[in-house]
Design a protein around this nucleic acid. Structure first.
Lengths: 117, 117
DNA sequence: CGAGATAATTTCGCTAGCGTAACTAATTTT
DNA sequence: AAAATTAGTTACGCTAGCGAAATTATCTCG
């Protein structure tokens, strides 16, 4: 699919996408926040604080704070796990889906622009 | 090159790359900082604060701060423009090149992993 | 030369994020 | 049922980042 891409092209794809996102005044997420958000939407649940901390190799408080931020944007929401009420399940939201759908479109557009360039 | 990618694949490429970067404990840059860094390395100089503010549609102080952060990481450096000493030229560094080369490799690896998946 | 324009930074008051350690609540173990 | 473990959050002291407005330094043009 994209095996025929070199390093410069890969970075330029990244550049075009991030620049578009910044120009559109999308929320200025950190790499950690983006990693958390994408995992919630693209990998199978359940998603817990502990699990995310291990997957990303960051501390649990860092995950709590990332969820705080993404929750305030309404990109994810917390739900107590009824099977084990110590756990918190990180869940998707409509707003988060919309954000990622649009972000995905930015990547594809960047890919097409790269073709033309 | 990557015209045959759909939205989910594009997002998953992004996810795998960002997760790798976070796991490797790379600096937790914001989207704005990453956009600035990539522009400095992938688009033709000169790169000024004013120019970057316009290209990214953010305020000049926001660019100044992003340069502060990237400078402290030694990913870019400031140099006064000798032709117009009011201007600051944002320049590349060895450390920044290394960081982006490695980041580019992460994107390509993510692309290959995506193939296999 | 002097007035105005321009480029970048600094300041202000404020919010967000950091890691470590302490804490709360829920569950499991014995 | 008491002790130990587990999950997540909160507290602490600190650094980073925000936009708007003020400030500094430099340049341009009348």
């Amino acid at each position: 699919m994209m095996t025929d891409m070199n390093e410069i092209q890969a970075l330029d794809l990244w550049r075009r996408t991030v620049v578009s996102s910044v120009r559109l005044a999308a929320p200025d997420l950190t790499a950690r926040q983006m990693a958390l958000l994408l995992n919630v939407y693209l990998t199978p649940p359940p998603h817990t604080v502990r699990g995310m901390a291990e997957k990303l190799r960051v501390s649990k408080p860092a995950i709590t704070r990332a969820i705080d931020r993404l929750s305030s944007l309404e990109f994810v929401r917390r739900k107590v796990d009824e099977n084990d009420r110590r756990s918190v399940l990180i869940q998707r939201t409509v707003r988060g889906s919309v954000f990622l759908r649009e972000f995905g479109e930015l990547i594809l557009s960047a890919g097409h622009a790269l073709q033309d360039a």
